[in-house]
Design a protein around this nucleic acid. Structure first.
Lengths: 294, 294
DNA sequence: CCCAGATTTGTAGCATACTTACAGGGACGA
DNA sequence: TCGTCCCTGTAAGTATGCTACAAATCTGGG
């Protein structure tokens, strides 16, 4: 019961995304169905085939053909996938924020966007690379996290999890101190270099420096990039990108979750005595918070 | 099309949670269905009524009665809800991490847990309070964010979003500087006090101090708590809590998303000239990253 | 220990929903 | 203008989900 992992996820492709993608290739009447789906996906959720056909103003077989066209084997599968997609939220492309949105809309859209992106990131994680990263971190003498801006937040967060990593952790956010830190690393140490773009010059330099010092380098980045080329292990955390300037940066949240995974996995590999020390640490932290008297 | 908000979410109750909750009240044969569902929910996703009945070794009407018992109006609705639940991830109670889990399992569980919790947080956000917070932040002269530990990360992240808030933002993570900052605040300023527990003594003190200085205080906390009592606006971000020590702290991620919502909403209320300045800022940041030559 | 009532479970039939085969109709090219 | 091809709807068939009813089981009292 502890190992119920990796059953084939329903289908990695979002139905609504698929519809948008296939729209060009659809026939005229099929597009009517697509329009209904794109304009208000939620009303189709409880709808039956006949109702869907009526909404779109087409016949039932047309709806079936539409399902087929976007890669579903039938109406039933379509509805299942639709439910899946809607649970994750109306897709990002539909959730472009505008000044006309009221607060409720902003809430839904930001959550939708975040959750959809996380699901996307999950399905695009490279398990092999992750495995290597866990192995490196598990036997690291010391760990340094590097990052700027939003990625600096992630670095700091990772550093705060050092009790889980079980090794001394540092996080450098200032570029001078980053260079110093990277230069001083030694064989056996691990540098985790975080950059969403992976193209910021100074961060690439850091990776190079750390590696020259003999440390292993793990790169946490949003896409294959110059940074990845300088790393021993590249963790690519893909996220949906939305050009809207107001779209909150999801990348840092996905990166935080990856950090959670890394720290958890490393901690789980350690023995029970490590868990005991961890438990004690938590207790003492609690005392600090509320005072130690009852 | 810009205002498609708040359609009634399919059903705020997770089918699997509901099954677990109702398990005691189920009849013997219905429990067989429940057992199948709980042991491997995913196999039921594509299954038909007949197949489900066969899996459980009961008759079809029994399955229907089971659906009814856990609050679904029929098998169809059950399957829809199941798809929804599974999309968000196998529920937290099932995802307790153990040393026996391999990396794939850790990945799935951490993502499941994060996504489920975010969905939960979304459904429990108080829109009215959020509205008040946005109003306060929108006309703030200056904004200070306070937080310790993991909440400190959130505070720092919020501070980095100051271009969106359109006001000078600070983030104090050291308790002495927090006191100093809080004391120096003035009427028209807004303090955002972040604490998952809402019970850490010094953070409550900060809220009190800031308020005494004439600032408005927004509390961002995980539950109704002593901190909430000291605030003008309380934003309660409920998250699923799991006692397992390895369970990553979801609270900070939910808090980050709320910060995203606040910053986005405030920015959207500002005029187009603010958006233009924001765009320019992004462009210059880009130049800094990659160098300004082509 | 047995019987009556209630409760639970399975059987059978019905209505509905999904799918497939086929034929009409329209667009395009010759 | 005719013929071909592609698109779309009609109609029939199949399977699926639901409901009424009857058999079986359990419970409690005599």
């Amino acid at each position: 019961m502890a190992t119920d992992q990796n059953p084939p996820r329903p289908a990695p492709v979002n139905v609504i995304e698929a519809t948008r993608a296939a729209y060009q290739d659809l026939r005229k009447s099929e597009r009517k169905v697509a329009d209904i789906l794109l304009s208000d996906p939620r009303q189709l959720l409880p709808a039956t085939l006949a109702q869907t056909a009526e909404f779109a103003g087409v016949s039932q077989p047309t709806v079936i053909r539409f399902c087929d066209a976007i890669g579903c084997s039938g109406f039933q599968e379509f509805k299942l996938r639709l439910a899946h997609s809607l649970a994750l939220g109306t897709p990002a492309t539909h959730s472009v924020l505008s000044g006309a949105d009221d607060l409720g809309a902003v809430v839904q859209k930001v959550f939708d966007y975040t959750i959809t992106s996380l699901d996307w990131a999950r399905n695009h994680l490279d398990l092999t690379a992750l495995e290597e990263a866990v192995a490196l971190l598990g036997r690291a003498g010391a760990i340094e996290f590097f990052g700027f801006g939003a990625s600096g937040i992630v670095a700091r967060d990772a550093q705060q999890k050092f009790p889980l990593f079980g090794a001394p952790c540092g996080a450098q956010l200032d570029s001078h101190q980053q260079i110093m830190s990277a230069s001083m690393m030694r064989p056996g140490d691990v540098a985790v270099v975080i950059s969403n773009t992976g193209r910021t010059r100074s961060i690439v330099e850091i990776a190079r420096t750390a590696r020259a010092s003999g440390a292993k380098v793990i790169g946490l980045t949003g896409s294959d990039s110059p940074l990845a080329a300088e790393c021993d292990v590249k963790l690519v955390v893909e996220t949906l990108d939305n050009t809207n300037i107001y779209t909150p940066t999801i990348s840092r949240i996905a990166a935080l979750v990856v950090i959670d995974i890394l720290s958890t996995a490393v901690a789980l590999r350690r023995g029970p005595e490590h868990q005991e020390r961890f438990r004690q640490m938590k207790r003492r932290l609690n005392d600090l918070r509320f005072g130690s008297e009852p």
